[in-house]
Simulated scan of single mutants.
Amino acid sequence: MNQKSVKSGVLFAIAAYVMWGLAPMYFKALNEMAAPEIMMHRVFWSVPVLFILLLARRKLGQVIVAILAPKILKTLLVSGFLLAVNWLVFIWAINNDRLLESSLGYFINPLINVALARAFLGEKLTRLQGVAVAVVFIGVVNVLVAYGELPWVSLVLAGTFSCYGLLRKKVAVESMPGLFIESLFMFPFAIAYWIVVQPEHSNLLTNDIELNSLIVLAGVITTVPLLCFTAAARRIRYTTLGFFQYIGPSIMFVLAVGVYKEPIDSTKIFTFICVWAALIIYVYDLLRVYKQAPKI
């Protein structure tokens, strides 16, 4: 992996997480629509946006090659399912004023990345990384004891996206063709929902221009950060990718508490402190390992 590729991977990672951090502002603007309806538009408008991009960059041939490879197609089917679950839960959480839980999920994500990298990519788990994972576990148990239930929104978002990133790192297909195929897998379900359920805002001719503009923008909002993420995942180590993960949830946390005024009690504060402490340990360990590594 050359230095130029790594640098571009870092820039892609930063761009992806900043955009994801600000994404709740977009979905809040569509708050009058139900989560499945927003999800439907998110999938529907992503397909033409990706098709145009692939056509412009002359990469439609890569889509055909991937479709004709059964192993790649099966992997993208699974990653597409994980992505669909992640999208739907995220939208639902924002619409139901649970942005803090979403933030917590994406704070946990880097530590799950570490565990997955150890289990499936052969990347070694250092002692400090083990400590960081244990501290996050304490924070999750704290919520379980206090509320009598697991923070399912946080765990689903963290788990699905970590597994999605792992699959996309291992599959031999570029980011844009892969995302297009994943979106194609979701597309029939979006169309079926549109026809059968006929949600309130499904007829674009009866909506005002502002709402229709926001709806169509779903394709861009969805596609651009995911393309940046998958491009980053293929250029840098998976554990290094986790280093930038805190950007998105930090922005979400500020939005949840400072802008949308979601309540935060002592239990949530303690859990966030555990997760932030784990991230500090994790980042410190990454920097320590980087400084000790031989420079070429």
Rank of each mutant, 00 (worst) to 15 (best):
G80P: 04
V65E: 14
T206A: 10
A15C: 10
A293C: 03
I236N: 05
V216M: 11
A158N: 08
V131D: 03
P199Y: 11
N212M: 06
I251A: 08
N142L: 10
S202E: 12
L100H: 01
V135F: 01
A23Q: 13
T75F: 09
I281F: 05
A93K: 04
F187N: 02
A15Q: 01
N86H: 12
I281T: 11
P249L: 01
L55M: 15
R288E: 08
L68E: 14
V133P: 09
L104V: 11
V18R: 09
E101P: 01
T75Y: 11
Y164V: 03
I296R: 12
L100N: 06
P70N: 10
V224P: 02
K124W: 04
Y106N: 11
L50R: 01
L255V: 06
L100D: 10
A134N: 11
G105C: 07
P225S: 05
A293E: 13
P151M: 08
G61V: 12
W194T: 06
G105W: 06
N96K: 13
I14A: 04
I138E: 03
I94Q: 07
P294I: 06
N31P: 02
K59R: 15
T160I: 09
Y106C: 09
I273A: 15
F185S: 05
A93S: 12
W45Q: 09
A29H: 15
A146G: 03
L104S: 01
L226P: 08
I181K: 07
V216N: 05
A16Q: 04
S154G: 03
A232Q: 01
V63L: 06
I52Y: 00
R168D: 03
G148Q: 08
L128G: 08
W276K: 01
L100E: 08
E123A: 02
L60T: 10
E182P: 02
F185P: 07
Y260N: 04
L68V: 05
L50K: 00
T160Y: 09
V254I: 15
E101N: 02
D285L: 02
F189M: 10
L150P: 03
Y282K: 04
L88S: 14
I296H: 10
S5W: 00
A34W: 00
A218N: 14
K261R: 13
H201E: 04
I209V: 12
V145R: 12
Y238K: 04
T271F: 00
V89C: 13
F137T: 14
I191S: 01
N95R: 00
A56H: 12
K295H: 14
I108E: 04
V18D: 06
L150D: 02
M252R: 00
K7T: 15
F107R: 03
I91N: 05
T240N: 14
F243P: 07
V145H: 07
I108C: 03
L255I: 15
G130Q: 13
F137C: 14
S175C: 10
G242R: 01
A158F: 03
A192T: 10
P151V: 09
G21I: 08
L128Q: 08
W194E: 08
D265N: 12
A190D: 08
I195Y: 00
G248N: 14
V197W: 09
L82I: 03
A69C: 12
M1K: 07
A134E: 05
A190H: 08
L279I: 14
I273Y: 03
L88M: 14
M33H: 05
A232F: 01
A233P: 01
A256M: 11
L287P: 00
C228R: 03
